[in-house]
Simulated scan of single mutants.
Amino acid sequence: MFDICCIGHLTHDKVVTTKKEVHMAGGTSFYFSNAIRNMDLSYGLVTALGQDEIRFALALREKGIDVQVLPSTHTVYFENIYSGNLDHRTQRVLQIADPFTVEQLADVQATVFHLGPLLAHDMPLELIQSLAARAKVSLDVQGFLRKVENQQVLPIDWADKHAALRHIHILKANEHEMEALTKQTDPRTGARMLNDWGVQEVLITLGSKGSIIYSEGIFYDIPAYVPAAVTDATGCGDTYMAGYLYQRHHGAGFQEAGEFAAAMASLKIESSGPFSGTYEDILALLKQGQKVMPVA
């Protein structure tokens, strides 16, 4: 029985610049797992990989993470090619993984399941319903809003959103994902709508402008903490969610949990790769960091 269990595909990310080509693991589950692995709770990851990428799961196990690997015909494989000044990216999806099924997850138990779909087909509605029947479900909605067609990532609406969101306790979306879901441009209006659809805790991240949390009819304005340097934003949202769920698990209120999450995300953006800070680093930033309050 885990306190928190993340379900999501690890990815094989190929990054090509004019200077080098790098192959690395990635995906919501990768960044979330690395961010939460040293926290005082019971954590597990359920992922699916093709045989050639089992090494990604083994590397996480070497860090002390409990990883269950389900079989998949392929691993999700992203190719990102950057121009000389890094301001333009061409992305292709060279492989997709098999979706998770109700049967595969039937014996996994947790207090909270955090879902990190990468693409719309990753997790069927029936799986969300099955998980919600035995635990709280947290969702990073990004993957349900995109599909692959001819190796290209295309934006879509989530066909099952009304049926699914009534089973989601905690939802994270950035302002663009919120607009795609609700057709609203104002984050507060969108957050209220998502709450009306059944989500009990709505988290809308606004990048460097902070974030807002809406629950029980109350908005909580969460500041962004100004980082010492902006190096790599990849995985910041996943790091935010790790901090938030950790704090909520230990009884923190919405404001406290949100600020802790925001501080973790700020520390993450200061370096490449997954979160590598300490609890003490987070507390120091909370105490001394420069804040930018959301204006939404």
Rank of each mutant, 00 (worst) to 15 (best):
I4Y: 03
G8C: 06
D13S: 09
T17N: 01
T18N: 14
A25C: 15
Y31N: 08
Y31G: 06
Y31D: 01
F32P: 01
A35M: 07
R37S: 05
M39F: 15
D40N: 05
L41P: 01
G44H: 04
L49K: 07
G50L: 05
E53M: 10
F56A: 13
K63W: 03
P71A: 07
P71N: 04
L86P: 02
T90P: 07
L94K: 15
I96F: 10
D98I: 03
V102E: 15
E103V: 12
A106C: 13
T111W: 10
H114P: 08
G116S: 12
L118K: 13
V137S: 02
S138M: 00
S138A: 07
D140S: 02
Q142Y: 01
Q142P: 07
G143F: 07
V148Q: 11
N150Y: 15
P155N: 06
P155D: 06
W158N: 04
W158G: 09
L165D: 03
I168E: 02
L171P: 04
N174V: 05
E179L: 15
L181S: 05
T182Q: 03
T182D: 03
T189D: 10
A191N: 09
R192A: 12
R192T: 07
L203N: 14
L206P: 12
F219S: 03
I222Q: 00
A228E: 10
A229N: 11
T231R: 13
T231V: 14
E256Y: 06
A263Q: 01
A265P: 05
A265C: 04
K268E: 00
I269W: 09
S272I: 06
G273A: 11
K287Y: 12
K287D: 08
K287F: 06
Q288V: 00
V295L: 04
